[in-house]
Write a protein that binds this DNA or RNA. Structure first.
Lengths: 202, 202
DNA sequence: TTGACAACCGGAACACTGTTCCGTTACGTT
DNA sequence: AACGTAACGGAACAGTGTTCCGGTTGTCAA
């Protein structure tokens, strides 16, 4: 039994697979040094291929970024339910999960910037992040609301949007200060006895 | 008595003054349409001058942006003390002032992005905003803390940094939602009976 | 093993950025 | 009116992303 579904493409040529792998490694290295905006030519040179080869394997930059960071985003998504089960409260789980997300973002130069960019080259990156992580965030948020810890009915997508934005330029003020701002945002979600209603009609 | 301090430059040539004015108007128009990243050639063409003329009058892009938005930032800075005097509480004044700041940012395409950018061309823009607005924000924050409304000792510079970041890409989620996120951040500052300590080593 | 063909490759070429530089223009002064 | 120079304008350069096509090579059938 073949390990591929019916009508699957007949497996790429050896050189193509080799180059794709080389490109992934070269891109990962380049991203660490120069951020996700590393020049195409640099990545091609590192991988020992021509620029055309990059565009054939990864039509947009987002495709390349997605391929490089796929595993890490998946593990972040998987951490959501686990944290919800292990944490003392849903809000604690939400906070911990968001810390995970922040840690991921701030260690990837330029990723947060790319995420909020409206550059069409990053559209699919944006979409992928949202598809993968927003539901997880939504679950955590819903649980926290059900537990009465969160009053505001903020859209999980907007919350993640805000957290992502706060991570932009984290290098300037430092990781700790960035986390502090994010904590402020998440703290703002909490329903407190004295919390003023920020909702339009409460 | 001349209306200029001693050793002042002997007043520029007429064509130079004319071109500078034309450039300011052209840049303002271009910024509205294409954001603060509008191509240099576009601005030059609108003003009917060569690109060299832009660089002579405004060595960096930040200089041009500062010149275009100077009045609006000044009026925002001036609003701080006024709001503090007129508002029912310091925290209300802080909230209102931040709304003013947000309104200014979200109506200028790309300004928030430029503000957080580490592009050296925008370094002086960043510095100018900070010099002009952070002290105002600091006064509001201090007053709110003195009134016992704010517990956290967040650096005003970091708060403005965060608010600015939240305004990035505001067009995507809309002005109202952006304001909501900002309100969440400011609400997180409030000291509430049930507020969890956001201490670093928590 | 050999040959043919499609998949694949590489990089030149293009379009578009910002930035610099210097020959030319024209303003203000004498 | 003549002159010195501040100011001008745009060609030229350097660095992006993106496309395209002639040459190469892996793969499979004969």
């Amino acid at each position: 039994m073949p390990t591929q579904e019916p009508s699957a493409p007949p497996r790429k040529r050896a050189d193509a697979r080799r180059n794709e792998q080389a490109l992934l490694e070269a891109a990962a290295a380049a991203f660490v040094e120069a951020g996700v905006d590393a020049p195409v030519r640099d990545i091609a040179r590192r991988a020992g291929v021509g620029v055309g080869t990059i565009y054939r394997h990864f039509p947009t930059r987002a495709d390349l970024v997605v391929a490089v960071y796929r595993h890490q985003v998946e593990s972040c998504a998987a951490a959501g339910p686990r944290l919800l089960a292990e944490s003392p409260s849903p809000h604690a789980a939400l906070t911990a999960w968001i810390h995970l997300f922040v840690d991921f973002l701030v260690t990837k130069h330029g990723l947060a910037e790319a995420l909020r960019s409206d550059d069409p080259a990053f559209a699919s990156l944006h979409e992928w992040f949202l598809d993968r992580l927003v539901p997880v965030c939504g679950d955590l948020l819903r649980a926290a609301r059900a537990a009465g810890e969160v009053g505001s009915d903020v859209d999980p997508q907007h919350l993640m949007f805000g957290v992502g934005n706060l991570c932009i330029g984290a290098a300037r003020i430092g990781r700790a200060e960035t986390l502090r701002l994010v904590d402020l945002l998440v703290a703002g979600l909490r329903v407190g006895p004295g919390t003023p209603p920020p909702a339009p009609s409460a």
